[in-house]
Design a protein around this nucleic acid. Structure first.
Lengths: 151, 151
DNA sequence: TTCATATAGATGCAATTGCATCGATAGGGG
DNA sequence: CCCCTATCGATGCAATTGCATCTATATGAA
């Protein structure tokens, strides 16, 4: 129960981290909305599914990758399916589950979102820091991750 | 309409920034909940009000500081007021507005939240990076901010 | 003064999120 | 085979958020 109080440098870095990430996400979401495109979360899912290929992914695999709660993934997948961006397939060796696979229009949507999302990243990060600085930033952030996390 | 696509370093740094900040916030929110305390947004408001002192703040001043939408601030203030953590005073020279001032129990709540919040920052940032690294991180993040933003 | 416009803050309604829980199947001991 | 427990995914309900709009006061031009 020893409640350590944080060093001033940590507090400052924390504040910037939180504020900056919120600002950047907000701007990107706004750009997507302005382009009549769905939110970032949709891209994340479509991206993972596209990487997974024809084999698709199980919803529970998606949960770790996109950092969303189980119930949010469940509902997000329902929306994506309703929009025809993915399809749910029963999985033979597990009657509880399903496999989720991206459709062609899902891939197309992913491309369209990326046109805006990528441009936003370029503008908000690529234009502000050099390649070397970006690498330093990524390395420092990497040390704050959970030990187990991938990118 | 030239849509630049971002350099790989920017994409990597972006991904880490988004994921890490979400993880850290999530853990901190969880710690607060576990301690029976209100969410981080409450702390932000109480912190700003505490800094503002007896003069208090106008709601619209809070909006910039806490990065929340106007309607969210309006409702958040209502909840804080309902909990007796702040009071709303009419302001003499502007009949539309009000001044919001923290109460003693608001200050007390701020302290209680900080006990957990500060410990979380210490654990999640202070323990992971050196003071020098934290400064580097803060400096890099600072370059990603909106030109006008304070901390 | 009078009207048009701008700003402060609140709110109705729809969409989303969080929480708890559910139904269904898996898997493992006895 | 029969339970008991764990896991997968969905969902009812309450709280929160986003969006649009509203009321009220302020400000400024004519």
């Amino acid at each position: 129960m020893t409640r350590k109080s944080p060093p001033a440098e940590a507090v400052k870095a924390w504040g910037r981290l939180i504020r900056v990430s919120r600002q950047l996400v907000e701007k990107t979401e706004y750009a997507l909305k302005a382009g009549g495109l769905p939110p970032l979360a949709w891209y994340d899912v479509l991206h993972e599914l596209a990487e997974a290929g024809e084999g698709g992914l199980r919803p529970f695999e998606l949960i770790d990758r996109v950092l969303l709660a189980q119930y949010n993934v469940s509902r997000l997948l329902a929306r994506l399916e309703a929009d025809g961006l993915l399809e749910k397939l029963p999985v033979s060796d597990d009657g509880r589950g399903q496999t989720v696979r991206i459709t062609p229009s899902g891939r197309e949507m992913r491309r369209r979102i990326w046109a805006v999302y990528g441009a936003s990243i370029a503008e908000l990060m690529g234009d502000k820091l050099s390649a070397k600085e970006l690498e330093t930033l990524a390395a420092l952030l990497g040390r704050l991750r959970e030990p187990l996390a991938g990118d």
